[in-house]
Design a protein around this nucleic acid. Structure first.
Length: 430
RNA sequence: GUGGGAGUAGCUCAACUGGUUAGAGCACUAGACUGUGGCUCUAGGGGUUGGGGGUUCAAGUCCCCUCUCCCACCCCA
């Protein structure tokens, strides 16, 4: 008999942790909604070509990290490795931009990449992100970066850094690639094997090399020279971040993004406690993606936050969100009451049960499960561990008289002979 | 895909160069207190040592295969 287990790199989120996720999700939804972003949900599966075209063949995501399979109609399908392509598709397909207005969207959900699992890297992972579409102004870049910074603080991450850079327009980028190719080709003898490979495939990524021996060569590489518009846009973004949004950032000329669709300003948030890869969020401008996918000419910018990584950062910074808020919990202990007794006292218990439901409607968490053969002592112990603030004790004595015994765990007081009809009014904790 | 480390009770980990019946803490259950939580004490239950194969008189320990987890590289949030 083989034991079933979760697929490599895909983990269960168990009840304890799930509570933290729920709290984070609530705060997240409320944050983006109050900032004028609306949620979009798209299917988890798309035709493979969508990602090939948007992310680009140069990226490893496409040619070795996608969950791609044939469906029954023999079409090639892929589990989404990121969200921007799907959102772009949905915007075009549903004609979401009919007037010359911007569109502010956020999303939250699972993504899939068949990488080898590592710290902060799972095969099924979760992202929350925004796409602000039809927003050509550099103000939108600054706004997005500021939004990210504010969000991180809201969820209790303080120790983050924002890095920004500009990749320039496609023309700038093409020129810069040529410049870099020429430069690194000359130095190629001293480069590591990985960088030699990058030189052929995607020069920009040489900047990501962690090899000490390559650093000197990288440091002396010619800097990006954006054209007039791109340069002044980037200056504007920096100015706005400083003066309007009050966001601390550093310009990192080595910051390049791995996805093909990025143009102009790109950025990244790094944080403590994340292992080798310390990016918790990243994003940038993608002015041509929607046009290239067959839509209108809609400049856009956006970012994605890795939720698993975010949770790690929250732990490192002791985010208050990780702490479970005090619950209004009530535990019902049945003392020596078996199934036969339950049947005998079904009338009393029926009224009791209705009262419990009223308590639940008022927001109390009520534990009322049948635990035969578990002593009262153990039930009280269980109640304590569960975090109950009060326990209602029902035994044959109480049931015969139609009353209950109430034990308050905080004041340690115990009240007897309380009528069941008083149940709803007796708990006033808020 | 490449490289390193690790899988022993529900959890965290012991078990010297292969050698009696694989142990401890925590957790769990029960009792002390026969209907009363937290603290203490006592007792108890719990294991195909990830799975499969091999070497050996003898394997948790050595060898091979496989699975999973952790870490790093490539790449990415």
């Amino acid at each position: 008999m083989t034991k079933y287990q979760a697929i490599k790199g895909m983990s269960d989120i168990l009840p304890e942790e799930s509570q933290v996720w729920q709290r984070l999700e609530e705060v997240t939804r409320s944050f983006f909604r109050t900032n004028g972003y609306e949620e979009i949900r798209t299917p988890v599966v798309e035709v493979t070509e969508l990602f090939q075209r948007s992310i680009g063949e140069a990226s490893d995501i496409v040619h070795k990290e996608m969950y791609t399979f044939k469906d029954r109609g023999d079409r090639s399908m892929t589990l989404r490795p990121e969200m921007t392509a799907s959102v772009a598709r949905a915007v075009i397909e549903n004609n979401l931009i009919r007037e010359a207005k911007p569109l502010y969207l956020y999303y939250i959900g699972p993504m899939f990449r068949a990488e080898r699992p590592q710290a902060g890297r799972r095969r099924q992972f979760h992202q929350v992100g925004i796409e602000s579409i039809n927003t050509p102004s550099p103000f939108s870049d600054a706004e997005a970066i500021a939004l990210l910074a504010r969000y991180l603080r809201v969820v209790g991450v303080e120790s983050f850094k924002i890095k920004i850079n500009t990749l320039g327009c496609p023309k700038d980028q093409a020129e810069y690639r040529e410049t870099l190719k020429a430069y690194f080709s000359k130095e190629s003898a001293a480069l590591c094997e990985d960088c030699k490979y990058r030189l052929e495939k995607n020069v920009l990524r040489i900047f990501d090399c962690k090899n000490e021996s390559c650093h000197k060569i990288i440091d002396n590489a010619p800097p990006m020279k954006p054209c007039g518009t791109c340069g002044s846009d980037f200056d504007t973004i920096r100015e706005l971040l400083k003066s309007v949004f009050n966001v601390f950032y550093e310009v990192d000329r080595k910051l390049v993004r791995g996805l093909d669709y990025y143009t102009g300003c790109v950025f990244e948030a790094t944080s403590a406690g994340l292992g080798a890869k310390d990016a918790v969020a990243a994003g940038g401008r993608y002015d041509n993606l929607i046009k290239e996918m067959g839509g209108a000419d809609l400049p856009a910018t956006g970012f994605a936050i890795g939720i698993e990584r975010l949770l790690e950062s929250m732990k490192a910074d002791s985010s208050p969100l990780l702490v479970e808020p005090r619950q209004k919990r009530i535990y019902v202990a049945l003392a020596g009451v078996g199934l036969d007794a339950i049947k005998r006292f079904s009338k009393v218990l029926g009224g009791f049960n209705s009262a419990l439901c009223l308590l639940r409607e008022k927001g109390h968490e009520v534990f009322f499960h049948f635990r035969p053969d578990v002593s009262l002592k153990s039930q009280l112990r269980e109640a304590d561990k569960w975090g109950a603030r009060a326990v209602i004790i029902l035994g044959e004595d109480e049931l015969t008289k139609g009353v209950m015994t109430l034990k308050d765990f905080e004041s340690k007081e115990e009240k007897k002979d309380i009528a069941i009809s008083e149940l709803v009014s007796i708990f006033r904790w808020d």
